[in-house]
């Protein structure tokens, strides 16, 4: 497909999805909200983990921290400014936290990222307990169609960001880190700087997603806001879809959320089993994900060749 045609199709799709907000029922809006949420999350995950190979199993830390920052300033600032601020605050903090965290590689980084999310969860828990708060309700949140539209916007931005970074020199630098970090360093790629930047960028959107999410759930509770399930779900979606380029997470999320709805309605008892088998199958047989497989099969090019 020609690039301009792709762009036109994407714009038409986005306008259509935004238009749906006006008349669709709660159920459709709810599914749309979930799909957009995971697209935004999985795309952000790809910026760090897909491109650099630093697999984060604790990406919920950004989601939860964003939600927490948002609930703390809830009522003090206008709603959407609050969402924006939570993204900025989390992005800035991750520039500091990322510095020591990204010095660790491979499996150690995977474990550390997971541990970091648990650590922050418990810090928030302790802090809340000290203030005698067990949960914080969100009163007067915007209507679902507004949250739907905001999430759609984040999904579009996240997808565009991944698409653009993947094709930029910045993205080439990130991928050279994934290929061979030492070689990248030797030839002059400023690896420490690039990794840190990718870490912060991949945290900003999940933080805003977290803020919007608690307006939908109506409540902030640190156990829920930092649940590892969110981390695992976005990783699963990115891997099943393909974690090297923007179309991957998009396909993975749509596939999984729809499958989830289908299974949930018809076979709730085997739902988790089927998901597990799927992930296993993809990792073993289609490691490049749906997108990688499609582009190899139908466009005759290997995943990494542009």
């Amino acid at each position: 497909m020609k690039n301009s045609l792709k762009l036109v199709l994407a714009v038409v799709l986005c306008v259509f999805l935004a238009g749906v907000a006006g008349f669709a029922d709660e159920y459709i809006l709810g599914i749309g909200f979930t799909i957009f949420m995971y697209i935004a999350l999985a795309q952000s995950w790809v910026v760090l983990s897909g491109l650099t190979g630093y697999i984060s199993l604790g990406h919920v830390v950004f989601f939860g921290s964003g939600a927490y920052v948002f609930i703390l300033i809830w009522g003090l600032v206008p709603v959407w400014l609050g969402v924006f601020c939570s993204g900025i605050v989390v992005g800035l903090v991750s520039l500091i936290v990322g510095y020591p965290v990204l010095r660790v590689r491979g499996p150690y980084f995977v474990i550390l990222s997971f541990g970091l999310a648990e650590l922050v969860k418990n810090l928030v828990l302790i802090n809340e307990a000290r203030m005698y708060v067990s949960m914080r309700p969100v009163f007067g949140a915007p209507a679902l169609y507004q949250l739907y539209t905001a999430m759609l916007l984040l999904a579009i931005i996240a997808t565009g960001l991944t698409y653009w970074i993947r094709r930029s020199r910045f993205g080439a630098g990130l991928r050279s880190i994934r290929e061979d970090e030492e070689a990248a360093e030797t030839i002059g790629v400023p690896v420490a700087k690039l990794k840190l930047l990718a870490f912060a960028i991949s945290g900003v959107i999940p933080a805003m997603v977290g803020a919007i999410f608690i307006m939908r759930s109506g409540i902030f509770q640190s156990g829920d806001a930092f649940t590892p399930i969110v981390s695992f779900t976005m990783v699963t979606m990115a891997i099943i879809g393909g974690s090297d380029d923007a179309p991957g997470p998009f396909l993975g999320v749509v596939f999984l959320v729809l499958l989830q709805e289908l299974l949930w309605v018809n076979w709730p008892e085997v739902y988790m089993i089927i998901l597990g088998i799927l992930l296993l199958g993809f990792v073993l047989f289609i490691p490049n994900g749906i997108y990688g497989w499609l582009s190899e099969k139908y466009f005759g090019n290997k995943k990494n060749v542009t």
Partner: peptide, 24 residues
């Protein structure tokens, strides 16, 4: 500029991508 031992080229980059990233 160093050309490292064991070459350490990027196996999943094309020849041209390997070269281009050398001009970082």
């Amino acid at each position: 500029t160093m050309v490292p031992e064991g070459r350490l080229i990027f196996p999943d980059f094309t020849v041209e991508q390997n070269l281009k990233i050398g001009a970082v």
